[in-house]
Design a protein around this nucleic acid. Structure first.
Lengths: 316, 316
DNA sequence: CCTTGACCTGAAACCCATTTCATATTTTAC
DNA sequence: GTAAAATATGAAATGGGTTTCAGGTCAAGG
């Protein structure tokens, strides 16, 4: 493949001029510009991106760190990030960690290696103390709120959304309310959830709290457990509409009426919830993704809170 | 940031030796290796990936061209591609085209620009004649079968799967069978579908063919149309389990029994189908993605057919 | 003792662009 | 008419690695 020197030689100009033509610099005479363009076309030349990145010192690439690539809320987030990235002529690379610490570090190192201009962290395996040093090499944006000034945040007021969801259930007269989460371990999100629960209902009943729920099947399994407890809950707050959908289906299958026998609230306004009429807490993850991407592109470490909204349907 | 020359100077060796240490070349004496490593650590040095890519002439990056980034079957595909890529130390970049021809060309050009080693095309806007020249610059793998020798294929025997699905319905006594597709335009996939239909049922009734179906809601809408036709179909073959799920739900809502009043078959074995017990044609898109990725990594332009399987549940 | 091969090292060429700086020519402004 | 600004161009430095080639040491094998 031809390079910029070949073009220069054949067009009878310097490489500088060729570079100027390539970058639409205005101080190039019309005839030379045409000549260069002709040669470029003849040789079917295309600039080498690695060389450009090397000199420019940036790649216009953004990494998206996610735990698993088969997660429904990741879809919305990726969606948002891609929307903004495509608009601003950036590229997105997907970095699934499976919560593996070394993998996560490997990905963060791509900032240091100048392979990425910025990274969006949706969920992390390492401590912030381990992560923060990497912000010297590129912007890191988090999907969780963190107070460290170097880290940008595009985050949700999860705590308030949880309180509001629980309050909604309490207002409808529910006292025995169960809830589900995705991760086994204690994430910030889970802590917020538990605190919100205590805030609204006072007590916290361990049997009403199920972990490891991700998909529809998990929802079915969760419902199977919860709905056969001696002291059956009358409402369940699920960590996603897929899970809520599973709960909904299982409840129907044992002839429980929704919402009179069982109220269900989901999260994230996923397609399945529309069909089933599930009330949901929409954290607007697409918007969260868009804003996160925007922060990186603008090299801003602002803390942006994205408003959530509760979409009332017929399951409460 | 320090570079390889700084390291060399401080360690009292040549850049060649530093490069050897970085790449675990065996002919480096233990003491020099240690010395270099120490300096690297002290200076917190990390090699510049753009420079490496430039000299190596490859980036270990693979592009995945998709039409929209909010499509269920894209999830499975991406999943498969990522699995294999992470395993083989490659990175994946997601390239959504919205079926825009220029955008697609822009992405294909990344091969020419040496930004990508290979590209997987799941759905394309341009003709093959336009696309094929780009295979000179990197491997292109297609998710549709194409006979051109330069293009690798990780494809599904869609035609046979459709015939088998229709035959299954016919065997159960169905004669009025409707079906849905995603794109409005005539894709290969749609053509296979119509041909398969004619093959099994002889005739083709336009009213039984609905386009533009992608999600659960579309399924509900489709069912609303189809199930109120004067000559109501007794079976529907949907283009995905989300759509099938919508059909299932709407049918239930008007008190049709499944499968006695209406048989439903979906595609891709998506989570929603599990809960609803929908029989589905699983094209194993995760495997398709894995194989596509593998082809690129091995620089092979083989034509690989991935077997589909019909998962019988209770909707037929 | 000599040859051969393994081991070790570095100079310099190479990959391919961008950008600074210097210089030359025209325009424009007063 | 002349100073200042705009236009036009190229040489050379720069970004940061890998790799070829050549040269050297040392031990084993015959």
């Amino acid at each position: 493949m031809a390079n910029i020197h070949d073009i220069a030689k054949l067009a009878g100009v310097s490489v500088t001029t060729v570079s100027r033509v390539l970058n639409n610099h205005k101080y190039v005479s019309a005839d030379k510009r045409t000549k260069v363009l002709t040669i470029i076309d003849e040789l079917n030349y295309a600039p080498n991106q690695s060389a450009i990145d090397l000199t420019r010192g940036e790649t216009k690439m953004i990494g998206l760190i996610i735990p698993y690539n088969n997660n429904a809320c990741f879809d919305q987030l990726l969606n948002g990030v891609l929307n903004k990235a495509v608009e601003k002529d950036y590229t997105v690379i997907v970095l699934p960690t499976q919560y593996n610490k070394e993998k996560e570090i490997e990905y963060l190192s791509k900032l240091k290696n100048k392979q990425l201009d910025g990274i969006i962290i949706t969920s992390r395996a390492n401590d912030w103390d381990t992560i923060i040093p990497y912000s010297d090499y590129g912007l890191i944006v988090s999907y969780d709120f963190t107070s460290h000034p170097a880290i940008g945040c595009s985050y949700i007021d999860r705590y308030s959304s949880y309180v509001e969801a629980f309050q909604l259930l309490k207002d409808k007269g529910h006292e025995h309310v169960a809830f589900t989460t995705a991760r086994e371990t204690e994430s910030m999100s889970t802590q917020h959830l538990i605190t919100a629960y205590k805030e609204v209902f006072g007590t916290f009943i361990p049997e009403y709290y199920l972990t490891g729920c991700n998909c529809l099947d998990d929802g079915v399994a969760a419902a199977k457990k919860l709905l056969h407890l001696p002291n059956r809950p009358t409402a369940i707050f699920a960590n996603g509409d897929e899970v809520a959908g599973g709960i909904h289906m299982y409840a129907k299958s044992i002839n429980l009426d929704i919402p009179s026998d069982l109220a269900v609230i989901g999260q994230e306004n996923q397609p399945i919830g529309v069909g089933l009429g599930i009330t949901t807490v929409d954290h607007q993850l697409t918007k969260v993704g868009e804003q996160a991407c925007e922060l990186i592109i603008c090299k801003s470490n602002q803390k942006l809170q994205i408003p959530y909204q509760i979409i009332q349907r017929s399951s409460v």
